[in-house]
Simulated assay, not measured.
Amino acid sequence: MGISIANAALRLVSGAFILNSGINKLRLDEASAAGLQQMASNGIPQLGEIEPATFGKMLSVGEISLGSALLLPLIPSRLAGLGLGVFSGSLLAAYLRTPGMTESDGVRPTQDGTALAKDVWLAGIAVALIFGHKAAKKSKKKK
């Protein structure tokens, strides 16, 4: 079941980025947690019902867990990709539903929206991890 160099590169880049982000949020103050929660609740309204401090801890633990899962080769790429897909989908939902983040077309980012819009690369990596192995198998069978 080995891991390809391409999958290893995708997992290393995204996993290290997300793990670092989660570690940096371990000591998140309540005001910063509340700001992140407000943005996140634009994408997933139920997140607004959680206490900001609890949300900050949950976000930190979630990012550390996901980053670790991406970095650990014993976690199958498809499973790690599914976790990354849920995470990146949440980020993109917040981006698309937060006023002032997109131009009038509702897709292209404004200056303020660029920081969130760039996370679309995580969605691309998730798709590659979920479907990449199957495509590589089909390609080998044709040869």
Rank of each mutant, 00 (worst) to 15 (best):
L12Y: 11
L12N: 01
L12P: 00
S14N: 14
G15I: 08
A16N: 01
S21Y: 14
S21T: 11
I23E: 01
I23V: 15
N24H: 10
L26H: 04
R27H: 10
R27D: 13
R27P: 00
D29Q: 11
A31R: 12
A31N: 09
A31F: 04
A33T: 06
A34V: 04
L36W: 02
Q37M: 13
Q38C: 01
Q38S: 13
S41R: 12
S41A: 15
N42F: 12
G43N: 08
E49H: 10
I50V: 15
T54R: 14
G56M: 10
G56C: 09
L59I: 02
L59M: 14
L59K: 02
V61Q: 09
G62F: 06
G62W: 11
I64K: 09
I64Y: 08
S65R: 01
G67A: 01
S68M: 08
S68V: 09
S68T: 15
S68F: 09
A69S: 15
A69Q: 09
L70T: 06
L72Q: 02
L72R: 02
L72C: 13
L74N: 07
L74Q: 15
I75M: 14
I75W: 07
I75E: 05
S77Y: 03
A80M: 12
A80V: 07
L82C: 13
G83K: 09
L84H: 07
L84E: 10
F87C: 01
F87T: 06
F87M: 05
S88C: 04
S88I: 04
G89Q: 04
S90P: 00
S90N: 12
S90E: 05
S90A: 15
L91G: 06
L91W: 05
L92T: 02
A93Y: 08
A94S: 15
A94F: 10
Y95G: 08
Y95E: 05
L96D: 04
R97D: 07
P99H: 04
P99Y: 02
G100K: 03
M101F: 15
M101L: 11
E103Q: 07
S104A: 15
S104G: 05
G106T: 10
R108I: 00
R108E: 00
T110D: 07
T110W: 08
D112H: 03
D112Y: 01
G113S: 05
T114H: 08
A115G: 01
L116A: 12
A117D: 01
K118L: 10
D119A: 02
D119Y: 07
W121S: 10
A123E: 01
I125Y: 13
V127F: 14
V127C: 09
A128C: 12
L129Y: 11
G132C: 10
G132L: 08
H133Y: 05
K134M: 04
S139W: 03
S139Y: 01
S139I: 08
S139A: 15
K141N: 06
